[in-house]
Design a protein around this nucleic acid. Structure first.
Length: 584
RNA sequence: GCGCCCGUAGCUCAACUGGAUAGAGCACCGGCCUUCUAAGCCGGAUGUUGCAGGUUCAAGUCCUGCCGGGCGCGCCA
């Protein structure tokens, strides 16, 4: 059920008929032919650019081509008016019966309306969050979490087989710093005065819990041992504790990932070595010395020969180091192992959601995927820009260095997970986002979460009232598909159906572009259309949803209300947001 | 210095992968509640899409060069 796809088929069929009749050259590619809702409703219900994009390959004048196509489209079912406009657009207006039929189709499809098999079951791996387990999640992490989760849901809805993945960065020097920081808190928990946290350590208060928990478990046994004895134990303990907390935070946000891959175990299992061997076999590894970056002062720079990956062969700016001077692998090497692992587990298509501070890392990872998969794997990276947390328009003070930052958990506790999720999706991922804790709780049109929820609540409210007044009417979507929908004739009613008819097309577009925010804007527009119809019924009694002496029109309108509620709920469920039954 | 991202109405942002006269909200003005939620709706103004070129029937969208902002730039992750 996809009205605009059906309309495209109508146009393509007409073009094929023309080719068969000799009105068009044979073998034209209709790929670029668009059949879209026009920006301006005055242009009709649907517009196609077919005459313009085919004019050149067909060696015809756009106007002539348009005349021929328009003549055939006039014969198509439900086509009321066909006009040629501007440089060669063909505008179609469809009769009310077409749109009434669409509503019936939407209701028959029910909750599966909008879903499709576009992806044809192709596997896609979406990796997101992947935060270091060195502290609680923040609002910045939340954006990546929600965007990744929504991209995954959008792709799943259009038929891809999606794996949601988290890569745990539990190896390297940062987790050693974590361990030493936690050890300080452990000593503190056992009564020592540790004073100010030295620089280079994680100062966050949250590590007090970790230290105390370790003291409770192991007593004072690590106080007297050397670092090499306690470090692996404390590190493991701290990582496990913090990862548990990360998972709890994600659960509170409604994010549940399928696969958690540990960098440490990947390296331990020889993943990095395997990556280097693979690259060596393809002659993509050499020992060389990198130039210092120009225009940037590096006081401790000294030229050093190191093991390098020929990333420049795959479009990167410089070749990239694989091994640190202490002999261990770089983060990059381990992450290559991660991506090779994902690829082998069955994902030619991989999507990574990263923070803005990793933007400089995109080219090398794409280069690595191309090299490791011999061009068969494809990596797409979505960069999430900053989240500016505000309260009443004023920035909320945060400093990671001083350990004073607002955690995701605090924000969820304050405004609720649904608000966090929706707001995080009201911007393109690569645009900065303002998150005003005051504004998102406002009940006004300025707050999209409220506005969309209100529309759904109003729709449900009508259906509740109808259930008591018309107990014999079956409100199930499939049942409402059979009522006399021809009674829906007002332009506002038909306009609302047209909005609903866009949903499958919009969802596919959001999936192909990896842009879940489109769903948020769609829902906002749909809510506006519904609120408009609602109020029109207040002004003109004949347009009220429930008309006491006309059971038919009431049933038809309830079908429209049900369809609207259905689509809003479907959109919100893509976002992992619960549609509300009533506003409080 | 180099690379990536961004630049649209006074403010916050859209613009359906190149379509028609660039649209919403906020703010400002004026209307609409004995009736399904007025937490809403209707009407009113606002633009050299940072600048300059180029490609195209068609450019906010693609290409080149500038200007402005953000992020990043060997052995952190």
């Amino acid at each position: 059920m996809n009205p605009f796809k059906d309309l495209k088929a109508v146009v393509v069929t007409a073009l094929e008929d023309m080719a068969r009749d000799g009105a068009l050259p044979a073998g034209l590619d209709f790929e670029r032919v668009g059949v879209d809702p026009p920006r301006d409703a005055a242009h009709g219900d649907v517009a196609t650019n077919a005459a313009m994009v085919l004019a050149k390959p067909a060696a015809m004048k756009p106007r002539d081509l348009a005349e021929g196509l328009a003549a055939r489209l006039r014969e198509a079912a439900h086509v009321q008016v066909v006009e040629i406009a501007g440089p060669g657009f063909i505008n179609l207006r469809l009769d009310p019966a077409y749109w009434q039929g669409c509503l019936a189709g939407i209701l028959r499809a029910g909750t599966s309306y909008g879903r499709s098999d576009l992806g044809a079951g192709q596997p896609v791996n979406v990796e997101y969050v992947s935060a270091n387990p060195t502290g609680p999640l923040t609002v910045a992490h939340a954006r990546g979490a929600v965007v990744g989760d929504a991209v995954a849901s959008v792709l799943a809805a259009v038929g891809y087989k999606v794996t949601r993945e988290y890569y745990i960065n539990d190896a390297g020097t940062q987790v050693d710093v974590l361990a030493r920081s936690a050890y300080l808190r452990y000593r503190e928990a056992l009564g020592e005065t540790i004073g100010e946290i030295p620089s280079g350590y994680y100062p966050g208060e949250y590590l007090k819990d970790v230290g105390a928990a370790l003291a409770a478990r192991d007593g004072d046994k690590w106080l007297v041992t050397e670092e090499e004895a306690w470090l692996p134990v404390v590190r493991r303990f701290a990582i496990d504790t913090l990862m548990t907390r990360v998972r709890e935070d994600l659960a509170a946000l409604g994010v549940r990932q399928d696969v958690f891959t540990s960098e440490a175990s990947l390296v331990e299992a020889g993943g990095s070595d395997a990556v280097v061997r693979t690259l060596e076999a393809r002659d993509l590894v050499y020992t060389g010395t990198l130039e210092p970056p120009k225009g940037k002062v590096l006081d401790d720079w000294e030229p050093r020969p190191q093991m390098l990956f020929r990333a420049t062969r795959f479009g990167d700016d410089v070749d990239r180091p694989l091994r640190k001077s202490d002999g261990t692998w770089t983060y990059f090497t381990a992450d290559m192992a991660n991506h090779l692992d994902k690829y082998r587990r069955g994902g030619e298509v991989m999507i990574d959601v990263w923070g803005a501070d990793h933007g400089g890392y995109v080219k090398r990872m794409k280069a690595a995927v191309e090299a490791l998969t011999e061009g068969k794997g494809h990596l797409e990276v979505l960069i999430c820009q900053m989240v500016k947390l505000l309260r009443d328009g004023e920035p909320v003070k945060m400093s990671k260095r001083a350990g004073t930052f607002v955690t995701l958990r605090e924000v969820i506790d304050e405004v609720g997970k649904d608000v966090v999720r929706f707001i995080m999706l009201t911007r393109k991922n690569d645009a900065p986002l303002e998150f005003d804790l005051t504004k998102v709780m406002e009940q006004s049109r300025d707050n999209p979460v409220f506005y969309v929820q209100y529309a759904h609540a109003r729709a449900r409210s009508v259906l509740r009232l109808a259930a008591t007044e018309l107990p014999d009417l079956d409100q199930a979507p499939a049942a409402l598909a059979t009522v006399p929908l021809a009674r829906l004739t007002d332009s506002t009613e038909l306009g609302l159906i047209k909005h609903l008819s866009l949903w499958p097309r919009l969802l596919e577009g959001a999936a192909e572009a990896y842009e879940p925010h489109r769903v948020a804007f769609y829902l906002y527009d749909l809510a506006a259309a519904f609120h408009g119809l609602w109020t029109k019924g207040k002004d003109e009694a004949r347009l009220r949803f429930l008309v006491a002496d006309d059971a038919e029109v009431t049933a038809a309108r309830l079908a429209l209300v049900q369809g609207t509620a259905l689509v809003i709920a479907a959109g919100l469920s893509i976002f992992g947001v619960e549609p509300v039954e009533e506003m409080r």
